[in-house]
């Protein structure tokens, strides 16, 4: 993970008051999160297993979209290498607001077991991450839990979040 010089308590950390409209919009947004098909390595297999028959991902309202322009959330499943980091950032920039990032697995969180020259030590050196998901590879239930946490996070935020400037990384 990166050592950020970002002030996390800029919002005060206090709970935000939400109006009915906010709750309604957040209800809509959180219950139909469309992820981008972004499987990089082994965690991609677990992501596919989450989307398959036993651990159905579709019941959360998620549909995997191939194009970043149509996706809400990007699940970074797998090792991010330095050769690929540029394309990761480009894909993230191509997603329209509001967008979220789930970093799945040890390699995406902190570089994982690959403490080498070619691995980015954490996807949050490149994109701002909302949910970190530990495991190598994390079980499908863990990915479902992460999505539920993300849904909870979305429901807590004001709906006009797009107007706030997203942090760089």
């Amino acid at each position: 993970m990166a050592q950020h010089k970002v002030n996390y308590l800029a919002n005060g950390g206090a709970p935000i008051v939400l109006t009915s409209i906010d709750k309604f919009i957040n209800f809509g947004r959180s219950n139909s999160l469309w992820p981008l098909t972004y499987g990089l390595a082994c965690c991609a297999i677990e992501m596919m297993a989450t989307g398959a028959s036993r651990y159905d991902f579709d019941r959360f309202g998620t549909i995997f979209r191939a194009s970043p322009r149509q996706a809400d959330v990007i699940v970074i499943a797998g090792t991010l290498t330095k050769k690929h980091a540029e394309f990761m950032r480009r894909l993230y920039d191509q997603m329209p607001d509001p967008k979220w990032v789930i970093s799945m697995g040890s390699c995406a969180n902190t570089g994982g077991m690959f403490n080498t020259y070619a691995t980015v030590q954490g996807a949050d050196r490149v994109v701002p991450v909302d949910i970190y998901l530990p495991g190598c590879a994390p079980r499908p239930e863990t990915l479902q839990y992460a999505l539920m946490m993300l849904q909870k996070k979305i429901r807590r935020e004001p709906a006009s979040k797009a107007i706030q400037r997203k942090r760089l990384v």
């Binding site: 797998g78 050769k83 690929h84 394309f87």
Partner: peptide
């Protein structure tokens, strides 16, 4: 290719044999 190059061969030169075994897992991860 090369977008998933993680340096496993170099890791093999810096890890003991038993220590390297879980790294080989991640080659053909299926």
């Amino acid at each position: 290719i090369g977008y998933l190059h993680r340096g496993m061969e170099k890791m093999g030169e810096n890890m003991m044999y038993n220590e390297f075994l879980p790294t080989t897992d991640r080659m053909d991860y299926i």
